[in-house]
């Protein structure tokens, strides 16, 4: 924990978890889609559902979808801005199983009808955790440039992935592995210290056994 986790961030109120964290959740969905959504479906769970209206959680997530940061003074007007920019928004509440109290399930669609669904939780102080992307389990903060790779569960694949990263001189901060069953499909989540160039990402996507490679960089659109 750095001193700037204790002092700051500069944010639009009223709640670091229900407002600032919610903006970041919307921003994650936008970054993963890598485009301005034309449609957004937002499901609020738990405390987000119960007190979200009073905390502006709905407006905060929509603000993130529009590309705003947690300190953007336009956050309170985001619903109107979404309308003006042609983004159709549906906000509803529901129960997600085994979810953190401050969780949202956000599905966004771009103009080409490509869709991304992300489940994320707000942990307090504006920090978030991404729980899943398109149903793929994961657990990461979005604070680092992150690769989310769906790959076949077979010997050696991780070393091939890390070899590509090494060849591009990308330093790995953390690695997580998930799988449904032995020899099935696995999800590899890799957090890196610096942004990853498109060539590296293409190389990873082309590896034998890699089904899909998704990249998240909160600092800029991929």
């Amino acid at each position: 924990m750095t001193i700037f986790d204790v002092m700051g961030p500069v944010m639009v109120g009223p709640s670091s978890s229900h407002t600032a964290g919610a903006v970041r959740i919307g921003l994650v969905a936008r970054r993963l889609l890598a485009a301005q959504p034309v449609r957004a479906d937002i499901l609020l769970h738990g405390s987000f559902a119960a007190t979200g209206a009073g905390h502006g959680t709905d407006r905060a997530i929509v603000a993130g979808l529009l590309g705003m940061a947690p300190d953007d003074p336009d956050i309170p007007r985001s619903l109107r801005l979404a309308e003006r920019r042609g983004m159709a928004v549906r906000i509803h509440t529901g129960e997600l199983r085994h979810a953190h109290p401050n969780t949202a399930l956000v599905t966004v669609t771009n103009a080409m009808e490509r869709t991304v669904t992300v489940s994320a939780s707000s942990l307090g102080g504006g920090r978030i955790r991404i729980n899943s992307i398109d149903g793929m389990e994961a657990a990461f903060s979005g604070e680092y440039p992150t690769l989310i790779i769906r790959n076949q569960d077979r010997p050696g694949i991780l070393s091939e992935i890390t070899r590509v990263l090494y060849e591009h001189r990308a330093n790995i901060a953390t690695v997580q592995l998930y799988r449904d069953r032995k020899g099935g499909l696995a999800v590899t989540v890799i957090e890196c210290d610096s942004p990853l160039e498109p060539a590296l990402r293409q190389e990873l996507a082309g590896l034998d056994g890699v089904v899909r490679c998704t990249y998240l960089n909160m600092q800029e659109e991929a």
Binding site: V10, M11, G13, S15, S16, T19, A20
Partner: peptide, 14 residues
């Protein structure tokens, strides 16, 4: 903060 204005969390928004 309560009115969705901009503040500095120190240490929290509240």
């Amino acid at each position: 903060n309560a009115c969705m204005g901009r503040i500095v969390a120190a240490p929290t928004a509240g």
